[in-house]
Design a protein around this nucleic acid. Structure first.
Lengths: 159, 159
DNA sequence: GCGATATAATTTAAATATAAACTATCTAAG
DNA sequence: CTTAGATAGTTTATATTTAAATTATATCGC
């Protein structure tokens, strides 16, 4: 009974290559996600979805629409509404009205939000670097290339 | 504005290899998860966590304890309680008492649960194979090896 | 045996998450 | 202009998820 056998303990034989790959991908994601979530809670009293949303905004100084956040974060619009509510209540972001289209909000980091995010982002990256420390840089680059092709594949042929 | 830019649209330059790798891993997971979730809902009126829990049980004919399900699925025990409640209410699994330890339940698939899972699993694998169809088998094997090493790395050094 | 500690599972409260329905606004065809 | 349809965002109902507290049972040291 190991510490975290993971979902891919499902398969052992040598066929089912794609299925095993998917389960392994999911296991690695969950393992990293769990560690990052705990570190964000312990050190910054925040959550992964809030951190991710702020990270999206940090790269878009002009602000992002709710729908654009939904597309980039790969979650539904209703979900974005909830997370933006939380962060706005905390004073870290604001909904700005778009004079050209009254249906739209432009969501932006506040000064305090930018300050807090900069502080957290550096720590966050150091955790990630530590988690991947056992994988040689060369192999990381190969992995990155394969996942990039996979992502392109997955986004191309949406029904 | 592409269909699904993904979380890793955060970074563009050539440093931050590990961070980019993590974001790409997460994006691929979410893209696949979203497709599988929709297919499970549309074709079988079920959800990903219920399917995953049944998959764990299918490989353990003697049954699994709640805590063992929690460890294998990388989620908290409270979460397992909820999913097991749902599946038990649907008649697909049962909680069996362990005569040797009265704190423990052994969770098992019912006959109907085994039947339904077998039916779903074949379809599920065909979706996965299709999603990975653009990645050559050779590259899938390489990816599998790298992710296997990463998983070992991530499970080894738990604090 | 007895009490301290550990383990297994559930419960609780709060945050995420989805899908579907709804409201408000915009765009386009006539 | 007016209305039909499309788009942006929210709301609603329900399910998943976590962390922390709680309950019940085991185990261990004495």
């Amino acid at each position: 009974m190991s510490a975290a056998p993971g979902l891919d303990s499902r398969l052992t034989d040598d066929s089912h290559e794609s299925l095993r790959l998917w389960l392994r991908l999911l296991t690695c994601s969950h393992l990293i996600e769990n560690q990052v979530r705990k570190a964000l809670a312990a050190q910054f009293k925040t959550t992964l979805p809030r951190f991710d949303l702020m990270a999206q905004l940090e790269r878009a100084s002009q602000g992002l629409q709710m729908g654009e956040l939904s597309r980039r974060m790969l979650v539904t619009g209703g979900n974005i509404t909830g997370i933006v509510d939380q962060l706005e209540r905390a004073g870290l972001i604001v909904r700005t009205e778009d004079p050209g289209d009254r249906r739209v909000y432009l969501v932006k980091l506040t000064k305090e939000g930018r300050r807090q995010f900069a502080y957290m982002a550096a720590e966050h990256e150091s955790w990630i670097v530590r988690l991947f420390a056992g994988i040689p840089k060369r192999e990381q680059r190969t992995l990155n290339g394969s996942l990039s092709r996979l992502r392109a594949q997955l986004t191309r042929e949406q029904p």
